[in-house]
Design a protein around this nucleic acid. Structure first.
Lengths: 354, 354
DNA sequence: TTGTACGCGTTATCAA
DNA sequence: TTGATAACGCGTACAA
């Protein structure tokens, strides 16, 4: 691989002339530029990003910590972060929480690898806050942000969806359709999240002067079992004396589970029962019937992540003046599961991922 | 940030002693080791991977080129590659095809960034073969592999699923259930893929002495519209004089579209019509009814990717002796859409992602 | 405008 | 077993 000194020698100039040219081609005389460009072309020269990084201390690389490459909305957020990063000339290095743990707790005695040197760090949907706190401490001089309340730690700016508002919008939508008896089924992964969502539901109900008949709270051992939670939740609810005409859930998969129960028991959706989900996952769009839901503002959050990191990098790494929490609203997406005027099958315009 | 020389000074030894210790702690005397470890601890020293990379020429980083973070099975493969890489101490750098294009075609005159220096490259589900060929040429000394036939270029070892076998297994399953009139609906992204799949279907049919009644081939403008393709495909098929009792598709989403049509028209699945998908995507498991499908061997492919790259890296980058194409079989997953004895709703054991 | 000299943090070679 | 030194490829004062 040709190095800068080879280019210099071939062009008949010094290394620094070439370096200067690389930084700003117009800062050298036209004939010099010509010769340098010729040399670069002939030698197929590509600057070594490593040597450059050693000198300049920045790698144009951001570390993204996540375990959730496969789950919505985490994968969406990663997707958009990746693209926003590329726009700005940054590459994304992905690492799992487990690997971060290995790095953080490595005995310095053995081959304790430090994390690859990066210009910024993004924590998303991590579960071990204690670990993140330690790692953040270790990388104290590197700009850091986090996404989703589950990853919030003090001192690291965080972006998340406004969960309360999402459920509030959904509930209000149902109320607007004339529903009186509305139940809520939700999974609990995080008490703060649950409380926010629950409050959104209650606020909509109370603003409309509706009586709260029922709610279901399934416990946390059911992670990755949301469809089943919806199915079982429906069974419980249908045992009660007062049956709801609509179900609010905080997850599309729970809603899909509700639909499965209804199919099994001859309950028509939305004629007999309206059902809503949350997060606008791909399955919600192609479910039978398609499920009314609220979007996750992944593009907005991704843009926030990059803009915030860029600001911090420019300001030498400090989080000064950046709010600890930034909330993004979601959008209500009305589909057949609540609205009989919508198609019960896929529309040509629908763009399913895959 | 403390550097190795700081550790050396603090411990009272030379830089090379510390470097030697770092490489193999047992290669220095116990008392020396003690002092060095103390210094590392006190100064919170972490070796600079950048400086190390400048010296050793390897970064312990692999470049993964893909545009499909959101689609199955690409996301599954990425997920597993990421984990297999971490197991071996490698980090994964993700880059889109567009960015690769920018890098490859950058005018050397301006700020032509080279790709970050990496120890290996993985191309997955890329669409622009010409570009990949150029990039592979540019990075000629870096070990490279590709995943999925869509990314195959000569000289770069490729892993993919055995598509013919997947459809063959599916068709045989239907034949075993007693189906006589079986139709096939497929999307066309790639003629080679289509031919493989089609051949698997025909082979199963002919081996069983079945007559081939019908097939549908929807054209390529419908990428990301698979559910709609299934829906429309069913409409066409139901217009024919001889109606099938089973439908083979090459994609779960097409199968789900078929189901939607059936729901709309009172056709019971699987009583009146059996439907099969492919790729074992999450929606296939939670569809109504759950869809019989074939798995994608993502873990096996990911392991192949890493093992192959490790081999190439050890052997100095050559693909010598590595087959150009490695095919992995898939597994048939029988669900309600073909088998009436299976549950039509979600089972408690089902682990849905998200 | 161009060139010289040094340093970034590490590893490897060789000598002590 | 440990230490001095060169080299990896580049950027940047500073001098010419």
């Amino acid at each position: 691989m040709a190095a800068i000194k080879d280019v210099a020698r071939y062009a008949g100039y010094s290394v620094s002339a070439v370096s200067k040219y690389l930084k700003d081609p117009d800062s050298v005389r036209p004939d010099t530029r010509k010769k340098i460009e010729e040399a670069i072309r002939v030698l197929n020269y590509r600057p070594s990003m490593i040597a450059r990084a050693l000198r300049t201390k920045n790698t144009n690389t951001l570390l993204l910590v996540t375990d959730e490459i496969l789950t919505v909305p985490s994968n969406e957020v990663i997707y958009h972060i990746q693209r926003e990063a590329e726009k700005r000339g940054y590459a994304i290095l992905i690492m799992t929480q487990d690997n971060i743990r290995k790095i953080t707790h490595a005995q310095t005695s053995s081959l304790a690898m430090s994390a690859a040197t990066v210009d910024g760090i993004i924590y998303t949907w991590v579960t071990d806050k204690q670990l993140i706190r330690e790692h953040a401490n270790l990388m104290s001089s590197t700009p850091k942000v986090s996404v989703s309340r589950a990853a919030f730690i003090p001192g690291v700016p965080n972006a998340s969806r406004d969960e309360e508002d999402a459920i509030y919008q959904t509930t209000k939508h149902l109320i607007g359709l004339g529903h009186d008896r509305i139940a809520m089924i939700s999974n609990v992964e995080d008490d703060e999240l649950f409380n926010n969502r629950r409050y959104g539901f209650l606020r909509a109900m109370s603003e409309a002067g509706k009586r709260v008949y029922d709610d279901l709270r399934i416990n946390n051992t059911m992670k990755y079992r949301n469809v089943y939670i919806g199915y079982e939740g429906m069974r419980e609810i249908m045992d009660r004396s007062v049956r709801p005409t609509a179900i609010v859930t905080d997850n599309d998969f729970i809603a899909i589970g509700c639909c499965q129960y209804c199919h099994e028991h001859g309950i028509r959706i939305p004629e007999d029962l309206a059902v809503t989900g949350s997060l606008n996952t791909p399955p919600a769009e192609i479910a039978y019937p398609p499920v009314t839901t609220t979007s996750f503002p992944s593009p907005q959050i991704a843009e926030w992540v990059l803009e915030t990191l860029m600001t911090m990098i420019r300001s030498g790494g400090s989080a000064e003046g950046i709010p600890e929490n930034t909330c993004f609203p979601s959008e209500l997406i009305v589909r057949r599961s609540t609205d009989i005027t919508k198609p019960s099958f896929i529309v040509p315009e629908a763009r399913q991922i895959i």
